[in-house]
């Protein structure tokens, strides 16, 4: 079966897919987009999180056939190309680095997708909102505190102007004490 979908703004086609394979498999193995990670294939870890027609979903639980005609955004789509053709990190990605929220990095793509969705919906989330928004993503390294710091930092840097998720590089300094 042939699958047509839009990934990170680009129309893509995958041939000879088995319709019951997951969107995660399509992204990683058919379309060469390994940013979304495969850890559990059962919706438990969130490392495969993408946007599907705007919704935050586990791509391991979407059948390839269900993604026909859909708009998918993966972590690769969070850092749009700059004028020089190189990707520019979004404010959120920058905050993850600055806050030390990345250790082995395996969970990072999924957490970025979940946090990006949160900040788009709620530019100034309370801590409880952050915890709830990230509750579907497991991290085995950081203990989560630095990740929550990173989301707070991204929020502080962007809430007053620039939109998150648009690849805007922040120039505001980190808030005091961080």
């Amino acid at each position: 079966m042939r699958l047509n979908l839009t990934v990170n703004g680009h129309p893509r086609t995958a041939d000879d897919i088995w319709p019951g394979e997951s969107l995660l498999y399509v992204l990683r193995e058919r379309l060469g987009l390994p940013g979304s990670k495969n850890a559990c294939e059962q919706g438990e870890c969130g490392s495969c999180t993408v946007r599907l027609d705007g919704d935050l979903v586990c791509s391991c639980l979407v059948a390839a056939g269900q993604a026909e005609g859909a708009e998918v955004t993966t972590v690769e789509g969070l850092a749009p190309e700059g004028e020089d053709g190189a990707p520019r990190l979004s404010a959120l990605q920058r905050a993850f680095l600055d806050a030390g929220a990345v250790q082995c990095g395996f969970c990072t793509p999924g957490l970025l997708m979940a946090a990006d969705e949160l900040l788009a919906r709620e530019p100034r989330p309370a801590d409880a909102d952050i915890r709830e928004a990230l509750s579907g993503n497991l991290c085995r390294c950081t203990g989560y505190e630095k990740i929550i710091d990173a989301v707070r930092l991204a929020s502080a840097r962007t809430a007053d102007g620039a939109a998150v998720g648009q690849g805007v590089t922040p120039d505001a300094p980190a808030p005091e004490g961080r």
Partner: peptide, 25 residues
């Protein structure tokens, strides 16, 4: 097949190989 949050787990783990899926999306 609706949201797939039960069924896809079964497909991913080869617990089920239905001859046909009826996607309700």
């Amino acid at each position: 097949l609706a949201g797939g949050t039960d069924l896809m787990v079964e497909l991913n783990f080869d617990l089920r190989r239905p001859a046909r899926l009826l996607d309700l999306s």
